[in-house]
Design a protein around this nucleic acid. Structure first.
Length: 581
RNA sequence: CGCGGGGUGGAGCAGUGGUAGCUCGCUAGGCUCAUAACCUGGAGGUCGUUGGUUCGAUUCCAACCCCCGCAACCA
């Protein structure tokens, strides 16, 4: 079966922090890894969102061009994703030729199908700059509280909402020159025409989506969706396919196409489709070049066509994103797909996560309240960070990253439970049994526990309940430590060597199960365990279900035994925290 | 009456119309193979407030109080 793992496209205007990892990057990676292990064909697709005001704002701030901003941060993001071992099949960008083409085609489909309409709206226009300005670039005095230098949509000082034209003495943030409201014509996506279809779409996903995600989407729909502008007056963005539009009847033309670009909200999500197409072109050798600028992977046994994922009705689509993206993926993106009339697959599940806070406060780049994801991974190890974030994923309510929580989780769960069990078992074999897996038979009790762990975790994975899946697998670790204690090998070995061998054989098989169960969450740790067991790494192959324990045979020579995780010194971490502030 | 979520032992969370559970923390004991790691037991809660339905409500209903997210181009 084909599974599209669609990961939200991050703006490339700054660092990816821990909140991004928790919100969608790690959940998507873990889910994709599980699916591959299970023998499914996975296409994990994403890329950098290169357009939109956040990019131009950052460019202004740094005194460089938007293109340079994109290049700079795209490169940094790629490095980070490689560091965290995120298993994209393709991670590309929205400023590629391929993406432009796919976006323009989709736009034309909707225009031809009469789902895109024209309308006029008012926007601030700067005479001096000779162009329209996004709200972000306009400031003035609040008519309610007289606070100066407020934005045109809401006053931060008194919190009141402003409508167009209310702001007193609006000026351009760039040139400080006067701006005035002026009519401008745009294309709009007409959501009204989709209300019925959307509501039956939501109905069909009732059992799959998280309750609050569905409730939120239904709330929006109930309120009624207005038509929404899909073009802007900008010079950074994807151009309209003017030549093609002009071939259509006159009433579909704007009176003036000059300075119109496709709005980023409409265009970026199309990346899920264009990214799949790019992947397909590269796999088939129809596109090459720029390999150092993307992440590209072809899994063993995977079919090569993007249509297998997008038009094959049995394919499943899972989307991962932060809560700010909920409306775009539960309502707008489905409309864009439906409107083409081409039968593209709609999202099966839209996995939305809440945000993660940092020491009880929102992450904030501007206030410096943030954690450098690359730095903590290098300092403490990728898997320690992956573990703590996963254990605290904001699946249903806001999460929290605290240094106390981090050290506690590492010391009590990773070191004391998982690490300890693996180490006490294997080092025992090393010192008493010459580092060879002893003879034994899998006891029923152990067999049952292992099976139950695989079974329960699988069920939780299918529902994308990743925190619970992780917790469940740690219950097997707890069982393992209990088993080790109850059996008291260290005593038995003095009286009955055969029985001691049997106990340790069983422990080895539990570890063998753990390396598989852990591999979606902590791939690095899984590899370490494999090496210690003298095994090759866990394999993923299409149509081969490797979500199961594979026996490690008696007589197998163990690799070098080492501790899996080092204990963290809270004092040192505290100091780190001071530095990071 | 904008939309949505939430108030449960010190902290973070599950949960159900019928004597309230988990993880961490705290505490007593056991063990000594293991990174002072592991195992067993214990203390600690009138399940936001008020009213209603019921033989019985933490769970269902109503009102109220409080907290949070979204409605902005903030993950």
């Amino acid at each position: 079966m084909q599974v599209l793992v669609a990961v939200a496209w991050p703006y490339v205007n700054g660092d990816i922090h821990v909140g991004h990892l928790a919100g969608y990057l790690l959940p998507a990676d873990i889910f994709a890894r599980f699916k591959r292990l299970h023998g499914h064909e996975v296409l994990m697709v994403s890329g950098s969102d290169c357009h939109g005001t956040p990019i131009t704002v950052q460019a202004d701030k740094e005194g460089i061009s938007p293109r340079e901003v994109v290049e700079k941060y795209h490169k940094l993001d790629l490095e980070l994703f490689r560091l965290y071992d995120l298993s994209y099949n393709i991670y590309t960008k929205t400023n590629t030729e391929n993406h432009r083409r796919v976006v323009q085609e989709l736009f034309l489909d909707l225009l031809k199908n009469n789902y895109i309409v024209k309308d006029t709206m008012k926007q601030y226009y700067s005479m001096e700059d000779g162009k329209f300005l996004p709200d972000r670039y306009v400031e003035g005095t609040c008519p309610h509280c007289s606070a100066k230098e407020q934005r045109s949509d809401q006053c931060e000082a008194c919190g009141r909402w402003l409508s167009d034209g209310e702001l007193i003495n609006p000026i351009s943030k760039l040139t400080k020159s006067k701006v005035e409201l002026k009519d401008t014509e745009h294309y709009f996506l007409d959501f009204k025409k989709f209300e019925k279809k959307l509501s039956s779409y939501l109905e069909s996903r009732k059992k799959i989506w998280k309750k609050w995600v569905l409730a939120e989407a239904e709330g929006w729909l109930r309120e009624g969706l207005e038509k929404r502008a899909i073009t802007r007056d900008l010079d950074w963005g994807i151009e309209l396919p003017i030549e093609e539009i002009e071939k259509l009847p006159k009433e579909k033309h704007l009176s003036n196409f000059k300075g119109k670009r496709i709005y980023v909200w409409f265009e970026a999500v199309i990346g899920y489709l264009s990214g799949a197409i790019e992947w397909s072109l590269r796999v088939n050798g129809q596109l090459s070049g720029g390999e150092q600028d993307i992440i590209f992977n072809f899994d063993k046994g995977q079919k090569k066509g993007w249509k297998e994922y997008w038009l094959n009705k049995t394919a499943k689509h899972y989307y991962f994103m932060g809560q700010d993206n909920l409306v775009f993926h539960t309502l707008m993106w489905p409309v864009q797909l439906m409107g083409t009339g081409k039968g593209y697959n709609l999202p099966t599940d839209v996995v939305v996560n809440k945000f993660m806070n940092y020491e009880n406060k929102k992450f904030s780049k501007s206030r410096g309240w943030t954690i450098d994801s690359a730095r903590i991974a290098k300092r403490y190890g990728v898997d320690l960070v992956r573990y703590y974030i996963i254990a605290n994923l904001p699946e249903n309510k806001e999460g929290n990253f605290t240094w106390k929580g981090f050290t506690d989780a590492v010391n009590n769960e990773l070191v004391a439970n998982l690490g300890n069990f693996v180490h006490r078992s294997l080092s025992f074999i090393q010192s008493r049994f010459n580092a060879k897996v002893p003879e034994g038979k899998l006891e029923n009790e152990v067999k049952f526990e292992i099976r139950a762990a695989f079974c329960d975790c699988e069920e939780l994975f299918e529902k994308v309940k990743l925190v619970e899946a992780l917790e469940r697998l740690f219950r097997l670790v707890a069982f393992a430590n209990r088993y080790f204690d109850k059996k008291a090998v260290w005593k038995v070995v003095k009286e009955d060597e055969k029985e001691a061998e049997n106990i340790l054989y069983n422990c080895v098989q539990i570890i063998a199960a753990l390396r598989v169960l852990l591999s979606p969450f902590l791939p690095g740790t899984s590899e370490k365990i494999s090496a210690m067991l003298g095994q090759a790494n866990v394999v993923c192959k299409v149509e081969e279900d490797n979500w199961r324990m594979e026996e490690v045979k008696a007589g197998t020579s163990l690799g070098k035994i080492d501790v899996l995780f080092e204990k963290l010194d809270f004092e040192l971490v505290e100091r780190e925290r001071e530095k990071m502030k």
